[in-house]
Design a protein around this nucleic acid. Structure first.
Lengths: 194, 194
DNA sequence: TCGTGACCATACGCGAAAGTATGGAGCCAG
DNA sequence: CTGGCTCCATACTTTCGCGTATGGTCACGA
């Protein structure tokens, strides 16, 4: 999580990938605004001169990092989850993954916070559609009418995204593991047909 | 919504209240970042010189505007809603108010987006606690076990806040009035005991 | 060894937005 | 009519973060 780097090339030299990874780290914690080149450079132990060799602009880094995240984490989660047949299990797995794989969801929460940014707006829209479609299909498959499936999917998704929002920095007495599990169970019990 | 101002004093002179109101307007649409003094000054037809007479700093305006909003809208909504006896009606009324009184909820959505800001963080935390307590009490009153009431309240609140997030600028094919109503009905049907 | 290219440091320019200094126009009490 | 108070304009300084210009170092192949 906080290790120096992975490919020490020969002696401290960095690659574009290193910058993208570092960008994702600070993005998960400080939001989009925290992805600043001079700040990142200090974190990586170099100066701006390095950055502008690898990337033409800050936006380029942001885009590269987000694309990287979307491919690596997001697609992987979708692919894994959509293999589960039972929709009840599918929803459970989705919410369970919020506790494990914290990093990925922190990035998503950060992107949600900055959904007005012209660069993340299409990403959020894309992911929202995909996840909503996933949930809608699951509910339809579980016997819901098309209209009801859509509504229930929207409810589940907004509950998920609102949950991420609440468990951000702003207070809200951090739930412990036990209460969290109990909450997840309650959600599944409420949003998934018996 | 876009009227010049309400208290033209004698000839164009502004008061601190005018600035706060204008700040809330742009806050609802452009978020916290949109509350800039020179931009606001242009909107009001004056210059920065005016602003820094009424307020010592930009943060002061932000705080005053948010406080104003919290007292005027938030407290009023809470007071009105908590008078309703039936929790089913209480929840329905809460979600219904998202369509009417758009302005107030837009401000809340904007504040949610900027929940990392040191000035809005305590506000969000305060409001979240209050609304969660309201919902928890309602569910408890409706016969839920204390633990279940807390969970259901959390689910309802996160669904609400996530819903606000989805209906921001970022795409998501704007629901029309009919579909919106159908969705609300579905939510109530799902989250409120028969 | 030489030189070329990858990677980085240093120093600067620049634009946006906050905040400051100061003066001016209008109104009201005396 | 005059002094003072309120509200605002103009011009300036400061800060911060992006981006640029330019040169330096180290490795590696010919």
């Amino acid at each position: 999580m906080s290790a120096p780097e992975q490919k020490p090339d020969s002696r401290g030299r960095l690659s574009a990938t290193d910058w993208e990874q570092a960008a994702l780290d600070v993005l998960a914690q400080g939001g989009v605004a925290a992805v600043a080149v001079e700040s990142l450079a200090r974190t990586l132990g170099v100066t701006k001169g390095s950055f502008y060799w690898h990337f033409p602009t800050r936006e380029a880094l942001l885009k590269a990092a987000i694309d990287r995240w979307e491919q690596r984490d997001e697609d992987q989660v979708i692919a894994h989850v959509e293999r589960i047949a039972d929709p009840r299990e599918r929803l459970r797995e989705l919410f369970q993954r919020v506790s494990r794989e914290v990093q990925s969801h922190l990035v998503y929460a950060a992107l949600l916070q900055a959904s007005d940014h012209p660069l993340v707006q299409p990403v959020i829209e894309r992911i929202s559609r995909r996840r909503l479609a996933l949930l809608t299909a699951a509910y339809a498959e579980a016997g819901f009418e098309p209209r009801a499936a859509q509504h229930r999917a929207r409810l589940a998704y907004t509950a998920y995204s609102g949950f991420l929002q609440l468990n951000q920095r702003h207070g809200m007495p951090r739930m412990d593991q036990e209460e969290y599990q109990a909450y997840i169970d309650h959600v599944i019990e409420t949003l998934v047909p018996a």
